[in-house]
């Protein structure tokens, strides 16, 4: 999984996860609540620069941004056009509204990308744990995360084995192979989960997954001040824009 690899190689990986989480979430909230185009542009630019500076190639970052962008364009078409009984019109206000919506959504996504590309899933889980997120959700996230990779590996191995025996020689066999892959993956997943449960029992598992993360970096005062200043400015600017623009 490319996002996982990028987060492990990020220059910001070892920075305090709580600070990164707070920055991403607070900025996202300000951006979404204010719904102001200029705020969205500022957030998009700042989170984009930070993510790219952390070691993500520009082209790859833009490629990742283009995925939600495609969805946003498609879903805002309905807003831009006014469908009347015998004609279709384009309203100037609607265009601005759609643009605002696209930019706001995109900047919210860029905040999440910043978090995903610079923070490993373990760090995100440890932050959620500190925020008293229900244990069952954290345990599920942990197991799903681990199983995604195991199932991807298994699916890859099965697909290689199918290809080696001309399992994808034409459309019909490809469909058949895909069906077999799906069903065998399901069986393997069940078997694997049973084995994992046995191995957990062997280590005194008692219905609660107790784990300890390695000690993390302490938050730097410099980063906290910068984030407070930035988000403070963003908040004031958004409030000002609501009342004075």
């Amino acid at each position: 999984m490319i996002i996982d690899k990028l987060s492990y190689n990020s220059k910001l990986r070892y920075e305090n996860a709580e600070v990164k989480f707070a920055f991403a979430v607070i900025t996202l909230l300000i951006c979404v609540i204010s719904r102001f185009t200029v705020t969205a542009i500022i957030v998009l630019a700042v989170t984009g620069i930070l993510t790219i500076k952390s070691g993500i190639p520009v082209f790859r970052y833009l490629k990742f941004l283009s995925i939600p962008l495609a969805f946003l364009f498609l879903s805002t078409i309905a807003i831009i056009f006014d469908f009347k009984p015998f004609y279709i019109t384009i309203n100037k206000n609607n265009i601005f509204y759609a643009l605002n919506l696209i930019l706001t959504s995109l900047s919210a996504v860029s905040c999440l990308y910043f978090l995903a590309f610079t923070t490993t899933i373990m760090d995100i889980l440890s932050v959620l744990k500190k925020l008293k997120c229900p244990k069952i959700i954290l345990e599920l996230m942990l197991l799903i995360y681990r199983f995604i990779f195991i199932l991807l590996d298994t699916a890859y191995a099965i697909s290689i084995a199918q290809n080696a025996r001309l399992g994808n020689i034409n459309y019909k066999t490809s469909l058949k192979s895909f069906g077999i892959l799906g069903s065998s993956l399901m069986l393997k997943a069940i078997k694997r989960s049973q084995n994992v449960y046995i191995s957990m029992q062997a280590r005194c598992y008692d219905d609660t997954i107790n784990i300890l993360s390695s000690k993390k970096a302490k938050p730097k005062a410099k980063h906290i001040i910068m984030i407070t200043l930035f988000d403070g400015f963003l908040l004031i600017f958004s409030i000002w824009s609501k009342f004075f623009l």
Partner: peptide, 29 residues
């Protein structure tokens, strides 16, 4: 807690996201 098994297939044993978390699991239990 007195009899430990190292399973043949490590992927069946390792379920945590990181090595450190994985090792801490049994001790915390």
């Amino acid at each position: 807690s007195k009899i430990g098994i190292v399973f043949q297939e490590p992927d069946n044993q390792l379920f945590c996201a990181s090595v450190y978390e994985e090792i801490s699991f049994g001790v915390l239990n």
